[in-house]
Amino acid sequence: MVRSFQLRWKSVALVTLCLGLAASAIADERRASIPHGSVELLSEQESIQPGRAIHLGLHFRLEKGWHIYWINPGDSGEPPRLEWHLPAGLRAGALEWPGPSRLPIPPLMDYGYEGEVLLPVPIENTSGLTADGEVALAADLKAIVCREVCIPAKAQLSLSLPVRAARSRESAETQAMFRAAQKALPKPAPANWRPYAKDLGDSFELRVNTGRSVSEAWFAPLEPLEIENAAPQKSVTSAAGVRLILKKSDQLLKPVSRLRGVLVMSQGAYMIDAPVAPAAAKRKKEQ
């Protein structure tokens, strides 16, 4: 009698435990633990409207000292990648990358994000959704989380959104996060900045006519193997703008016709696409 009571109690406890686990699995699909932090799939709206695009975001929170990487990770590491599982009619665009931080690991230099970052991702919505339904937006994440050492991170994230005819806003907190993330994205450089670069042989000179002196400007290249990431970037700023000397990568074997990347300044990050004037004729002869 005592024994069967114990058994019954145990099975009740087991069932309760299983239910609890199942419930938490459903509730927490949008959020996952990763080594030394967490990641959450966020939506800027509480619901999705038929035919209207929506922004989701990948929100990383990392313990102090740990980082993830920018689209060009620099000398080591790799950027987070998503593989989407979306219902017909929805298509995910590429992740959008806020201006990165420099992460020095002497003698190397990486580009990425420490602490907290939201990477927005646009979801194209070509209709096919009917109001009052529900859609599941799921993505498999692969990333690497590093401090001195690196730990691979994998997560299966999913978000269920009701389909509504009317627009519905997310919480003020989530909206503020998306606004801040949009603000952190590099803006197109104004046309009158006319960024251009000169090949100086061992380095590039990048000029951007911002029309005012800037402080703390540095260039994050989109392509690897163009500049020596860890080399100090000598910057000269004047009323006309900023001039940066970027040491060429020893691995760069061919001339570069354009320098593409992000100019990170204290007043914001800007996308740069600068034509490169070839090295002076005298140098050419030497080569």
Binding site: L108, C146, V149, Q251, L253
Partner: peptide, 15 residues
């Protein structure tokens, strides 16, 4: 392909 970005962990040099 004589050069490419060497991906991986940073080499753990002494500091």
């Amino acid at each position: 392909t004589p050069t490419s970005r060497p991906y991986g962990c940073s080499v753990k040099y002494a500091h």
